[in-house]
Amino acid sequence: MSTFLFAVVSGILFGVFFSLMAIGLNFAFGVMKIVNLAHGDFVMLGAFGAYYALSTFGINPFATMIMEIVVFLVVGVGLYYGIIPRLLRSDDPEMLSLILFFGISQVIEALATLAFGTNPVTLPTNALGQLSFQLFGQAFESSWVISFLVSVVAIGLLYVYLYKTKMGIATRAIMANRDEAAASGIDVNRISAIAFGIALVLAAIAGTLTPFMLGGIYPSVGVNLTITSFSIIVIGSLGNPIGTVVGGLVYGLSLLLMQTYLSSWANMVPYVLLILILLIKPSGLLGKGARNA
């Protein structure tokens, strides 16, 4: 029983962290209908940022997080204006974005390998601070609890942005229909550029927490993170950022419960769930209506 409860609570903590990791990918898809295959590589860069800041300059991961928010916002907006309007003019931007960002992912991984080498690096888990958390008589890892809290705050802020600010409402209008939003006088490019910047910022925040959640960080880790993020957002609902939280919870719980009871099959579970959910409800758990062609 205690192993069951431990897996469930850990699954929730782990799952919400993964929701944060995946939500930027989903947000970019929702606004621009592009698939950022380099998402995991941005997470990896965020993680290396936290690593170098702490190990070389002794900068606290939270301070790094704030610096990275600024840097990734600028990078995201720049990247948007550099490539995306051009991409959106093509016949099939959704599919072409897969290839374009595959290329970007290769470039990032190659540059990261030149800069950081290939050895995995870790940070001591207590660098995030100590926070004792007991539930059902069991102690949970401090870094997991802190990462969970940060994730909840970040996702909450995205929610506030989307539903309570003028720009957020404009963003949602673009998500509903890009052409109509443009026709009603919304500066589609400016709002989308900021949305892309926010997507990368969310990746970076998850990145600064990654060394505390996932063991070693190395340049080629990005691909795995992208694929996991993908599964999560499709389980939740593609294009609906809040659905990602559900996807993350389903992922975290199923993964850690399988690790407990049938460990050799554990990594397969998210994919089985993904297929099952897609076949039963093609639009994902929180999707509105099926997207039938």
């Binding site: 593609l238 089985v272 297929i275």
Partner: peptide
């Protein structure tokens, strides 16, 4: 049954299916 999906859903669904076969 994956063909019931479209667009990126199909792409990612088929990706998940191949991962299942691999595992």
């Amino acid at each position: 049954p994956l063909l019931r999906l479209s667009g990126a859903y199909f792409s990612i669904g088929s990706l998940a299916a191949s991962e299942i076969v691999y595992y």
